[in-house]
């Protein structure tokens, strides 16, 4: 699955989460040219925004619907590859290098199970997602107008962070760069 396809699938998942939980969320079109890893700071900001909005709903005792919401949106493990139609020697020397798109630009190879993918350039920076009418909607949701929605665990409340006593509900973007440590012997 190419980065752009992945981006589209993840965007649909975010939209579904927002819709099912009455969260204001406007899906915007990605302006990035070329391939990506399927996410970018803007997508991450939207994800963090949803986590925060869900947390707000939980704290207000409202129903939160997350688990299994988008099962059909991400494909499952690919089934058996029909080995009989593939010549492994040809595949070995000619396959897996990646394909060219219609404009002739080289595309990265599709990852295979368990493989560390070759690096792909992605976007850097930090972005905060702010919906157009965030203030007004927050006012509405924190007041008595929403009391009829007040739910409880009996109403199917889900806590995707499994409790927050150890800070698992924090919504900061983790540092993905990391620091290399000295080599280890194996």
């Amino acid at each position: 699955m190419k980065g752009k396809d992945k981006c589209k699938a993840l965007k649909e998942i975010r939209a579904k989460i927002a819709e099912e939980n009455d969260i204001e969320y406007v899906v915007s079109e990605c302006k990035h040219k070329g391939d990506c890893k399927g996410t970018c700071p803007k997508c991450e900001a939207e994800l963090i925004y949803l986590e925060k909005e869900l947390e707000k709903r939980r704290s207000l005792g409202k129903r939160v619907c997350v688990t299994g919401l988008a099962v059909g949106m991400a494909a499952t493990v690919a089934g058996c590859t029909p080995a009989s139609v593939i010549d492994p020697i040809v595949e070995f020397f000619g396959g897996g290098i990646g394909t060219e798109d219609l404009a002739g630009a080289a595309q990265p190879p599709e990852p295979v199970m368990g493989e560390v993918e070759p690096p792909i350039e992605t976007l850097d920076g930090e972005v905060e997602y702010v919906p157009d009418s965030e203030n007004s909607s927050e006012e509405d949701c924190s007041g008595e107008d929403c009391s009829e929605e007040n739910g409880s665990e009996e109403n199917g409340s889900e806590d995707p962070n499994g409790g927050s006593e150890d800070g698992k509900g924090d919504n900061d973007i983790p540092d993905l760069a990391g620091e290399a440590l000295p080599p280890e012997e194996f």
Binding site: L10, I13, R14, K16, I17, E44, L47, I48, L50, E51, L54, V66, T67, G68, L69, A70, V71, M73, A74, E158, P160, N161, K168, D170, I173, P174, D175, L176, G178, E179, A180, L181, P182, P183, E184
Partner: peptide
């Protein structure tokens, strides 16, 4: 060289996708 992560450090690295994990099983 690889990078050595503790249990909590690994969690910090992967938790960003919590919603994707939960919604897609």
């Amino acid at each position: 060289p690889g990078e050595i992560l503790s249990v909590d450090e690994l969690y910090e690295r992967v938790k960003i996708d919590n919603l994707y994990f939960l919604t897609t099983n």
